[in-house]
Write a protein that binds this DNA or RNA. Structure first.
Lengths: 124, 124
DNA sequence: TGTCGATATTGACATCGGTCGATGCTGTGG
DNA sequence: CCACAGCATCGACCGATGTCAATATCGACA
């Protein structure tokens, strides 16, 4: 395994799921905000949001890149955005033969949702 | 009322709440993604996320700018970010004498949360 | 081994966006 | 009417980011 390999991305090694308390429980610290804002930023681009929605709505909760590449930008750009979503912890990828499949990370998604839903409920 | 007034921001005049289906129900259209990504982008900056959290966690669900200005950036920058949060429909503002108060928009927040929570639940 | 299809990476470019100092606007109180 | 405080706007700077063409990598299949 000394040859090439992909050196195990460190971004996925630590648990990203239980990131922060609800947004209205207490003010976020600078560090918490730094971490959490990255996830929101990942969905803050229309192309990425479409790609994410394409993966999330695809049968089986996963999709090959070739299935979701039709969003109006070039292939490198699609790859770039998928990488960003992966780095943010929202997607994971797996190579299967010729194709690479992406699937959503439910835990992270749920954490983000809880952040907002709880805050909205309490604020109402 | 011809004098000054604030001319009723058009961004808040149309219902922003039921923006989109859950992210895994069907692929978002380009237009939907364009609209929805703006809300996520608004929370995709650490300073804005802290400001939003400060407002949301403040007593009464609202806060004077002077109460939340201590986030490590200059006063114009705070004002700039609050404007962005307001433009995204996440906050509303009201002038009361010398001070301006910001409060969260629960409906929009809940809509964003539902977008994520439903998707996470179904995906799990 | 060599070619081909699928995806990732690189490098360059233009635009976007966060930041600040300076300044303007709007109430308050003297 | 004037000075001051709170907040917004302006203009400029500069790093971040979305985009593409070109190229590299990786696996499948002759």
């Amino acid at each position: 395994m000394s040859k090439s390999s992909v050196v195990e991305l460190p971004v996925l090694s630590e648990p990203v799921a239980p990131c922060c308390p609800p947004l209205n429980e207490r003010p976020l610290s600078a560090e918490e905000a730094e971490r959490t804002s990255k996830m929101f930023k990942a969905l803050g681009d229309p192309v990425r949001l479409r790609l994410f929605s394409l993966v999330a709505s695809h049968a089986g909760g996963e999709a090959c890149v070739c299935d979701i590449s039709d969003v109006g930008v070039s292939q490198p750009t699609v790859s770039h955005h998928l990488k960003k979503l992966k780095d943010a912890g929202l997607l994971s990828s797996e190579r299967r033969g010729t194709w690479v499949y992406y699937r959503v990370e439910p835990a992270v998604l749920a954490a983000m949702g809880a952040l907002l839903t709880t805050a909205a409920t309490k604020a109402a």
